[in-house]
Design a protein around this nucleic acid. Structure first.
Lengths: 217, 217
DNA sequence: ACCATTTTTTAGATTAGTCTAAAAATATAT
DNA sequence: ATATATTTTTAGACTAATCTAAAAAATGGT
């Protein structure tokens, strides 16, 4: 069993590698973990020794199948707990991340299966992110970031990339959440912002916001 | 905020001191924490420095009001999570202790208040132990161990002292749980066992079992 | 191709919690 | 009351995860 800290590193590597598609650099990993490059190197060496990572000095790391599975199990727990907090306990979607960061490390297969069952086997969490199954298999998303959407195109919001609370509060304000329809009306080349139609209302989306909004045409 | 380990020490000291009524000896604490006396001494010194404990060398420790409050808050979380696991997720009462040992350390006031609300503000956990309120105040129990009960006396089971899974399974088998009526029929002086009437059935209780069964006349 | 910059790794130290072995204090037994 | 046994504390060492500072490797510009 990986330690609390090891689990957090594996999860960060999974996210930084875009679901395992590219190697993760030491500095990026250190930044994501809010630590120093030297510490990241140490941990990477340890995780490589335990066969969670393929590590080549100076060239970054990749998750092994074992590491990938482990990361996805932690992500499954995180997303199930977030769903529980919002659906069952009535938390707002911008309040759940920190608590789920703790709950995801509870070691009990039985507990997470019971929570899954209690929630009725949800497919996505409150942010629209897919929940891996108990084997660590992930449903493909086929979504694109909203800033890639062509003008005049209609699409459905499927997920929000970042779990930052200030972003989620902003999205709440304009009524953007998974399931809502969105249509790009106009774009500004100056700052890459856009005007869009969301639920019949005109809204302005900055580049930062539209990049974090995943949609499906 | 005390660390994970510090919280476990405080909880152990609370239980070993019989709710703060007597000092706790280093060896007993070490045994309860499954560690060595030297480690217990180190931790006790640290907790005393942080004003959770009153410590006099070679004479054991007592919880300060601050330490008592902290211990009761951990115990509150433990018992609320146990109640949640049994009532909401359908765990058996002998399965919840280990998981609750982990969940009790989640740091989120909001979360535990929401769980409390969701459960309808229960007064006791599945083992009959009282749940401290959010200030760390505990309802008095006024219960005696079943082995103190006089022959012929009728009483109601209020709680089970130990959370050991094999004890709880045994109690399940004979149908002993909080709320059930019990009457002492006869005692054996040889082994301090007893025969009792439980829900219309005759049952035999060893000294070990009857000591762990709390009743109210 | 070489020098400067950036990134990564190594070396050595630090903290929390633990350990073993030895010393010190307390308790017990005659 | 004094020796013996028990309990507790101290001293010094270990592991996991971190840090700073310095060394080593890779990258980029001309």
């Amino acid at each position: 069993m990986p330690s609390f800290t090891e689990e957090n590193y594996l999860k960060a590597i999974y996210h930084l590698s875009d679901a395992g598609t590219k190697p993760v650099l030491t500095n990026d990993l250190a930044e994501a973990m809010k630590t120093k490059a030297a510490s990241a190197t140490d941990m990477v060496k340890k995780l490589a020794l335990k066969n969670f990572l393929a590590y080549k000095k100076y060239y970054g790391v990749n998750l092994t199948p074992k590491g990938n599975r482990e990361a996805l199990i932690v992500i499954r727990k995180h997303r199930l707990w977030e769903t529980f907090l919002v659906q069952t306990l009535g938390f707002a979607w911008d309040e759940v991340h920190e608590v789920a960061e703790q709950l995801e490390h509870i070691q009990s297969k039985r507990l997470i299966e019971k929570i899954d069952e209690f929630l009725g086997y949800p497919k996505t969490d409150p942010h629209g992110d897919p929940i891996p199954d108990r084997k660590g298999k992930l449903q493909e998303q086929h979504a694109i970031a909203c800033d890639q959407l062509k003008e005049g195109k209609q699409a459905v919001i499927t997920a929000v990339k970042d779990s930052d609370s200030s972003l989620l509060k902003l999205l709440d304000k304009i009524g953007a959440k998974p399931g809502k329809k969105i249509k790009v009306l106009a774009r500004e080349t100056f700052d890459d912002s856009m005007e869009a139609l969301l639920d019949g209302h005109k809204v302005f989306l900055s580049k930062e916001v539209s990049k974090n909004l995943l949609v499906k045409e």
